[in-house]
Write a protein that binds this DNA or RNA. Structure first.
Lengths: 166, 166
DNA sequence: TAACATTGGTTTCAATTGTAACCACTGTAT
DNA sequence: ATACAGTGGTTACAATTGAAACCAATGTTA
């Protein structure tokens, strides 16, 4: 395929799969390693799960939104959001008030406390991201950015339009 | 700490986090989308979970290995492997025999049936990968390959040497 | 040889997650 | 008003997962 530095042609039989080179697999291993490391970091310090932290991250940037809007933003599902929010309410990191215009809708926000925690996690998160990409040149960072964007479009199509063939 | 190449045009306050641009987050969303789509594809056709399929994929390339070696190869954990193997034994996709040299160790292989299923899944998997990367140019594919490699090294260091700071 | 640490692998139990059913409210049509 | 479909959000239950305890075999030390 792309790179074979030590062989004139790829020697792998077509009916074998090189898992180590298989993109979906590599993405998954990489992403798991990264997520686990980071979630340990703030999980340990602030007792936050990844979904909870995601909710806070969104609320930090977009105040006054509802759970449904969180679903849109994060691509997490309804139930996960509901649970994350309810645990964040319990720990007083977020506040919730009814939207008088639509009494089904609950408007969410970071609480004072939540804002403090948020302010402390953000640099930590950035530090991790920084550390992760120090090994990349500026060009590579840009490349990665645009490549991820393209892959995401494709993957999104899968989930929307159903799978290949079928 | 390490390097700082931030553009002057960035308007986001430093103490805010743009989740949509946060690499660990994007990786996770992308990887989940891809994995779910693909696992649906062969889960539906062959009743395989992702861990089970991974085990088969490794066994297809590396016969006569043990569960412990599977752990090494896949970065999955002991228990996940154990469960996957036991379900694969039940469906007769893999065989297991005791290593006479070390009676704790079990040597695993694809069965005839397993090999057949493997042979049918491989093209399917490749088709998905293909479809995913059609949106990328040849250069981009090479870039992605090497970038993932670099990120993986870093993430691996985290899990081995513990986290940043600490 | 007895004692103890280590390794390969499984089991158990609790926490996390996903799916579907559900309740409460709103919007629309009758 | 009344009925009914759609939406926001939660609950209940089953399946999946992870951590820790565990068993059996091996290696190591004395």
């Amino acid at each position: 395929m792309t790179n074979d530095h030590n062989a004139p042609q790829t020697v792998i039989k077509q009916d074998e799969l090189r898992l180590e080179k298989f993109l979906p697999y590599r993405l998954s291993v990489l992403s798991n390693r990264v997520s686990n490391a980071i979630s340990q970091a703030y999980g340990a310090r602030f007792h936050l799960t990844i979904p909870a932290w995601r909710v806070m991250a969104i609320l930090g940037r977009f105040p006054d939104i509802s759970a449904a809007e969180l679903v849109e933003q994060t691509a997490m599902d309804k139930v996960a959001i509901s649970r994350a929010v309810s645990s964040l309410l319990k720990s007083d990191y977020v506040t919730r008030r009814e939207d008088p215009a639509d009494r089904r809708r609950q408007v969410l926000n970071l609480s004072e406390q939540g804002r403090e925690v948020y302010a402390r996690i953000v640099p930590l998160a950035q530090q991790y991201e920084n550390d992760l990409i120090t090994s990349l040149s500026t060009e590579e960072r840009e490349q990665l950015d645009s490549i991820i964007e393209k892959l995401m479009v494709r993957a999104k199509e899968w989930s929307e339009r159903g799978l290949i063939d079928e």
